[in-house]
């Protein structure tokens, strides 16, 4: 592997993996999906203006890949809660609930929530990254918050 790709991998693998996990809900699927995303970069190398541009490309690529996976007819198996949560996480009930609520979010809200709440991007930046209007991002975040609130029992 070219050294730059390994460096890119080291910089962004966790981000890509987390996003894939939030979409697909299982560690093994997230692993495969994240690998596919970096494989795309390997097969179609490109120049990035900076690290943020690189990260944005990987996030959008991961998001699209996961949406395709979810749409794919072959992905029909039911993922159990036990499989979703790594035993090594040592997650508490409180955390389990939140993870479950995140996993239950409709796909179109997942990238907005992840980018806004975890990656700390502003709504305008999320909008640029996903190629949608900022108002749509705000709307999706509002609906996602309501869904999370419902899932978490109003807390």
């Amino acid at each position: 592997m070219a050294i730059d790709l390994e460096a890119v991998f080291r910089r962004h693998f966790a981000t890509v993996y987390r996003l894939c996990y939030s979409y697909l809900g299982s560690a093994s699927d997230a692993e495969d999906a994240a690998q596919s995303v970096f494989l795309k970069l390997l097969n179609h190398p490109r120049e990035f203006a900076d690290s943020e541009h690189e990260k944005a490309w990987l996030i959008v690529c991961a998001s699209n890949h996961c949406k395709d996976e979810l749409k794919s007819a072959r992905r029909t198996r039911v993922v159990s809660m036990g499989e979703r949560l790594d035993a090594s996480l040592g997650a508490t009930d409180h955390l389990d609930e939140t993870i479950d609520a995140v996993l239950k979010l409709p796909p179109k809200y997942k990238d907005c929530v992840y980018l806004y709440y975890y990656e700390g991007y502003k709504t305008a930046e999320v909008a640029d990254m996903l190629g949608i209007p900022a108002s749509t991002v705000r709307n999706r975040l509002r609906k996602a918050r309501a869904l999370l609130k419902d899932s978490l029992g109003g807390s």
Binding site: A14, A30, L42, T98, I99, L148
Partner: peptide, 25 residues
């Protein structure tokens, strides 16, 4: 805070990172 904790819990372990990197290599 809750979402950050949830996403942190979804982070890959070092073992997973190494495994995927090895597959990419």
């Amino acid at each position: 805070a809750r979402l950050v904790a949830a996403y942190d819990a979804m982070s890959p372990s070092a073992e997973v990172t190494d495994r995927v990197l090895a597959r990419l290599r």
